[in-house]
Design a protein around this nucleic acid. Sequence first.
DNA 1: ACAAAAGTGTTCTTTGTACACCCATGT
DNA 2: ACATGGGTGTACAAAGAACACTTTTGT
Lengths: 257, 257
Amino acid sequence: MEYKKELQRLIEDFKTNYLPSVSVDLVIFGFHDGQLKVLLLRWKGTEEWCLPGGRIRNDENLDDSAYRSLRERTGLREIFLQQFYTFGDVLRYKHIDQHETLRKLGLPEEAVHEFANRDVSVGYYALVEFENVVPTPDFFTDECRWWDINQVPTLLFDHNDMISLALKTLRRQLSYQPIGYSLLPDKFTMPDLQQLYETILGQSLDRRNFQKRMLGYGILERLEERKFGGAHKAPYLYRFDKEKYEKVLAEESLFVG
Amino acid sequence: MEYKKELQRLIEDFKTNYLPSVSVDLVIFGFHDGQLKVLLLRWKGTEEWCLPGGRIRNDENLDDSAYRSLRERTGLREIFLQQFYTFGDVLRYKHIDQHETLRKLGLPEEAVHEFANRDVSVGYYALVEFENVVPTPDFFTDECRWWDINQVPTLLFDHNDMISLALKTLRRQLSYQPIGYSLLPDKFTMPDLQQLYETILGQSLDRRNFQKRMLGYGILERLEERKFGGAHKAPYLYRFDKEKYEKVLAEESLFVG
DNA sequence: ACAAAAGTGTTCTTTGTACACCCATGT
DNA sequence: ACATGGGTGTACAAAGAACACTTTTGT
């Protein structure tokens, strides 16, 4: 059976080229239709969904490994990606026993034993531009697609918790630094940006105060162009000034300078 | 040789009972003499210093493993401990080649190979009451003592970076939630608390505004007692109201509720 | 009595929030 | 022409920063 053979090869590959006991999980946020979306994967032959993730190569930096996984699932590079928490509870497999889970996922018995070691998982979250993503399943999954953040089903492992914490971190981050660069298309209107904020925060904001604050960051460039086609007054288009944007981000960043 | 035998036993123990590829490192802050201190360990037979750390048992939660290591080095339990970042660069061993480091540390050749696998390390920081700590070296080290935060030498691995980031996180945390519970003795004066803040932040604060803010948290209880013996006016003593303190902390916590 | 630290309140500045009118566009 | 959303500015409230005088203690 082709699948089994491929699986065997994969297990071997993992054993020799990747770090045991550690993995990376990604909460990939996108924004579309006024809704915040998360990218999820469906396990082969089941109705079980989970977050995309990956393992760390022996010779690979942790961050690079997260970027690599992100690239493999979305086709995107150079986007906003940030570590938010490391999950290490023994019972990260809440709903059912882990061996059960793995069997349920259709892994043959010998593979179950290989994968059933408990992992510590480093959580990253990413903000990506919805339109540019080409959702791509991996070997273990046969579907990769966006889910509305409010309609995420019960996921495998502790992945629902991960999404909650990622969102919480994202919301906090929103309050002290700008966000939106990699979530919106190149040119966007102020109402677009506001809708993004409102969606992430789950509350509505005052239009005038919002605009004041955003312009106050000094990271937006107003274009001459306007966006016609809406049923009403044509709003101005804006673009991020990438240089200033990065500067503002860097000032408040947690990363080791 | 007794040491070699013990080392062999230890390596065996690690291989069977602990997760490979992952470790925990601790930045333990204490406060004494108006100075912020960090607890460091000196490797057996060398002048090389590093952070205390530990490994995760197969059946142990990540957080519990950090608590255990902390207890082993300080004798303390139930103190403030928080994950701040996970370090996973391949070159976490900046100064010299890792094999060199390990040999330099006096490990026999066979042990070098066992330990030379690259680890991902989860960083935690702790705030402890200086007076209560009994610094205790472990198997690999023959000294454990406090260092002034401004006089920390060049440490092994990426441990200087870890301290920097821990301090940065601590400073940020200070701005939106109270700190001090486990860093100060049970009863303390407002100037004591202020000095703690000034030391951590590395800047002086206005006495009146500081007091206003602290009392504003509603977590301090002023005692009738005062602290005599200083050369001047006797300041009041305060105590934290543990219950309210925990409540304020919980409101802003990042942890999964 | 005096030097040095501690207790206490008020003013000012800055930041954020609330709020209303006019204008442009597609139908 | 009109309904709808977009553009803009001002007044008020809250939070934070600046600041001075009186009191207490040991020497």
